[in-house]
Design a protein around this nucleic acid. Structure first.
Lengths: 375, 375
DNA sequence: GGACTTTCGCCGATCGTCGAACAAAGTGGC
DNA sequence: GCCACTTTGTTCGACGATCGGCGAAAGTCC
């Protein structure tokens, strides 16, 4: 407690804007706080401005994180798209790009494309860290996809090695969506689930405010949990009655005789009764699985996102109906089930947060400050 | 890092038995380590003995936790029983007692009984902390049962207030079983599930080596998750097709026409084919639910305990069969499913561990050491 | 028995933090 | 507009904790 990193955390979170705030929050002496702040200013991490409001005495100098010198690249790789966003250290987006890109083209081709896009967007800015979301399980510590089903050629590929000069954080896209939603909409919440209903169905888990990735980085893979009464539905995983095979966007599209989940959404928006009924029923099936997970995990909040959440009125109705019927009263008592606020940018938000929190973590800041003092 | 509490943690865990070990592990100077050790000795927490093995020079003095001055009470309250065990700070059991006791008699009667038993067993020993397991959800921080279904009169009762002179840690019994199994059999494991198959069915969750209790302390309540194809089975919770209603000990007993889960176990041990088949089928149903939870949580180890695990050959066969069929290969790749090693003492073990870890936590030790120095 | 190794206490040097004193920069009353 | 008061920020000496070197203790090994 009280290291330069901790001080910066308070400043960047907005919990403290003056030296007095810091002294109060950390319990350190004013002189010590000043020394810490000076070190952070010398490293170019913090900036001082005059013009604070006086509270009856000398007005305090305002402290703020120097967000503009560092740029974070947030990359969201889907099965068929690539979104790149640049943000500053404060989380403000400064540039974005979006392309169609088949992840199945393999890591070399895809990452070359990503690097090119990032460099174009960067211009004169300096890159500080990269966060990348991919549609499959990842061994997080190493940044290697772990047997991803829809990413041929990516298994065990060391993504960070492709960007040798900056820290690279790679994670599953659904995890990142959960992280983004947690930090933006429910920052104080301890336990949260994010359910992504797109072509497939996945779930991101936030426990004690941190991502739970599981032993193999495959936690949250709820698409192949069995649902009652749909033994006829075969799934690409080889089993039958999987949630994804009956309630995923692809399954709905097939049932309604259209091409994609997007067209299902379009049908619902046009008021197609059959599509509407199908989405609501999908919500019920997802709710059945979710009811079990709510009993098991006991979260405070469940966020529903992904393509199909664009018609969340009907999807959520089905989910809520089943969860509140099948989960135990104690677990649902204070449970909130809400649609995602981030929409299509959820994964990119999360990727940016992951990279930003890595760079701004107390340990990393302490390293930077010591390195800077040694010069 | 390096506080007296951290030093004691290394000693009590057995990671360090000499001052040299401590210097190496903490990175502190030898002189500083000696100072820390002296403080711990002055407080009576650590003891020095000669007779260490030389490694070519002066033989080191051995350090060990003084386990004998402090006594931990571990209490396991079930629906109809009360087990009390006293252990020293090292976890060695020094006395036990077991009674029939109806938890439904309410907190006053039950806790009076517990206090009496603890005092009897204690004799001249001094009590340091109490851990108590109860068969229902608990708001852990406050030690209050939270809407427990089979503990009438206990709702919101502040258990710690009944023992005003010592720290009291109260938790759900299944959580404690999970904790006990984790610390004893799988200490290095990050993510573990403990499934208790008794009259009902519950689950304890260890994530990142720590208990996950959920928002209302009801996490792990998997007994009322729906299983396929048993719509006819009504459950006491008001729904139907709950796991507990088809695979719990009570359900099996009813199906086999006997009184209790214990009799079901007896039938299996006698080789009754019908009972054997029923247990195996119960295993399959539990496995179906567990398969989903394995996908969701991605643990490294699943431990199966509780009454019915006494016939774990047949139960585990059913569980393994279904989990390995219905879970994703990535999640089962390195998954171990094993029977509990603790048996009937699992909850008491966990209660003791909870209390011991509380007392030996770095923060608490630091407090004790400062208090002792001030004298 | 002597050279070497490892352990351990002692003690001066060093580093980090604290808090008092002082300077700076405002507010508000008269 | 001046002066008392408040809050902010810096400087500096004091204090405490840690470090690391030195020497003594207690062994091993040749």
């Amino acid at each position: 407690m009280g290291s330069p990193g901790d001080v910066l955390t308070l400043i960047s979170a907005g919990s403290a804007t003056t030296r007095s705030d810091l002294a109060r929050l950390t319990g350190l002496a004013r002189s010590t706080v000043s020394q810490r702040v000076d070190a952070l200013i010398d490293c170019g991490l913090v900036e001082e401005t005059t013009g604070g409001e006086s509270t009856g005495g000398r007005p305090p100098r305002q402290l703020r994180l120097r967000t503009e010198d560092h740029t974070i690249a947030a990359v969201d790789l889907g099965a068929t798209h690539c979104r790149v966003a640049l943000t500053d250290l404060g989380g403000t987006t400064v540039a974005t790009a979006e392309d169609q890109l088949q992840i199945a083209e393999g890591p070399q081709a895809v990452l070359t494309h990503v690097k090119k896009r990032v460099d174009e967007l960067l211009g004169e800015r300096t890159l500080t860290a990269i966060g990348i979301g991919v549609p499959g399980p990842v061994e997080f510590a190493a940044g290697r996809p772990n047997n991803p089903p829809i990413m041929p050629g990516w298994n065990d590929y060391p993504v960070p090695a492709f960007f040798p000069d900056v820290p690279v954080l790679v994670d599953n896209d659904v995890n990142l969506m959960a992280l983004g939603e947690h930090r933006h909409a429910f920052p104080g919440t301890r336990h949260l689930l994010f359910v992504k209903v797109g072509t497939g169905i996945g779930c991101g888990i936030v426990a004690e405010g941190r991502l739970h990735r599981g032993a193999q980085g495959s936690a949250g893979d709820i698409g192949h949990i069995r649902v009652s009464g749909h033994e006829e539905a075969g799934c690409r995983c080889g089993n039958s009655a999987c949630l994804e095979a009956v309630a995923g966007g692809a399954a709905l599209a097939r049932a309604l005789g259209v091409e994609s989940g997007a067209e299902v959404v379009a049908l619902v928006q046009q008021g197609d009764v059959q599509a509407l009924r199908a989405v609501r029923e999908a919500g019920r099936l997802i709710g059945e699985v979710l009811a079990g997970l709510v009993n098991f995990f006991n979260p405070e909040v469940v966020v529903v996102g992904g393509l199909l959440s664009r018609v969340h009125d009907h999807l959520l109705a089905g989910i809520r109906e089943t969860v509140y019927r099948r989960s135990l009263p104690l677990a649902t008592q204070h449970l909130t089930i809400v649609p995602s606020r981030a929409g299509v940018d959820a994964a990119a938000w999360g990727a940016g947060i992951l990279a930003r929190e890595h760079y701004l973590s107390p340990d990393n800041i302490n390293r930077l400050v010591s390195a800077c003092e040694d010069v």
